[in-house]
Design a protein around this nucleic acid. Sequence first.
DNA 1: TAAAAACATGTAATTAATTACATGCTTTGA
DNA 2: TCAAAGCATGTAATTAATTACATGTTTTTA
Lengths: 194, 194
Amino acid sequence: MKTTVSEKEAVTIGQRNRLQYIILGLLDQRPQTGYDLTKAFDNEIGEFWQAQHSQIYPLLKRLEETGDITHEVTMTGEKLAKKQYQLTPAGHEKLVAWIGEPSPELTALKDEFILKLYFIKTVDDPRLQPMLEEQVLLHHQQLQHLLNRRETVFADQTAIDQAYGHYLILDHAIEREQHYVQWLERYLTSRKDS
Amino acid sequence: MKTTVSEKEAVTIGQRNRLQYIILGLLDQRPQTGYDLTKAFDNEIGEFWQAQHSQIYPLLKRLEETGDITHEVTMTGEKLAKKQYQLTPAGHEKLVAWIGEPSPELTALKDEFILKLYFIKTVDDPRLQPMLEEQVLLHHQQLQHLLNRRETVFADQTAIDQAYGHYLILDHAIEREQHYVQWLERYLTSRKDS
DNA sequence: TAAAAACATGTAATTAATTACATGCTTTGA
DNA sequence: TCAAAGCATGTAATTAATTACATGTTTTTA
């Protein structure tokens, strides 16, 4: 006769699930709904991480089950129930612990252009120059976009002081794109010879 | 009475499966076994893409089903059957088509350190400097590793001429690490003041 | 000659992430 | 006032990728 013996499901959140920490970090700033969090990925966070609402809502559920967050229902109008999520002390500690951990993993590139380059065997392959040209355009655009972002988001020193880490990564991304473009241009054979 | 009506399984390989092209590209160089392909990810390819044998073997099966590759069994010793895979004309065309396509997607960073930085709000956060120091070390090591790779793999001009794309991406990776280290050092407050 | 390392090939289980499906409310502006 | 845009929350299906499980052969080296 086996009756009880605590039928708890092991709620195991995978080791490498970094999205949960982004959510904890965002909720550490202020209580927010799943919708708010989703929107955050269209804006600032989206610059370096992507997530859809279909990933966020289930994760909020799991984080609540593990005791890292709680929610309160607030009403908008008469029928629309919003779930305002907030960190528990345990969730806050989890966030702090994660930030405090070493980050010894190097970024895997996973850049499709780089991948294709690998299969270009000779310097005179006719596909090489068009590929480089395309990437110059792409990364130049991205650079412009990032420069605009910096101008609008970090117009004054106060903005920088209040989100210093965010400023740093935007600065880093800008430099990365600048160097990427420079590198591409070095291998671009200019066609415009007069 | 429903009897036949062609019970074909739709072999749909996902749109974003880039690993298949790496495999096609590697097999384009010479016929190889799954084991050989796996080893390639420990060496040159591993610098910018990762894959385990548990992903490679099923993919080889699927690529054979779609008619992109075929295999021949060769015996080593008396019992060990090796499957030597090679490209079909269709597989070759698929590879060429992929390389010829535009690559308009920007690399998502997915760099855990960058992610953590985002949650550092102020310049005087005591966690910031140790984090930067750790990354300087890490990227300095990676830079040394890449420089060694270039020395050993591309010792002479002949080696460069025969794998020009590979040389380009190694060169690119080296520059990226150099700039990463420079960037980190700029924000490192040197503690060694005399 | 025996053990260890390397060669060789698979499957199973799990997780993260993307795309698609699905529904309904509230606010804004034409 | 009514339609569109935006707000809000979920689930289902699929895929890519990782880790673990599983097995056996051949070559090297101590």
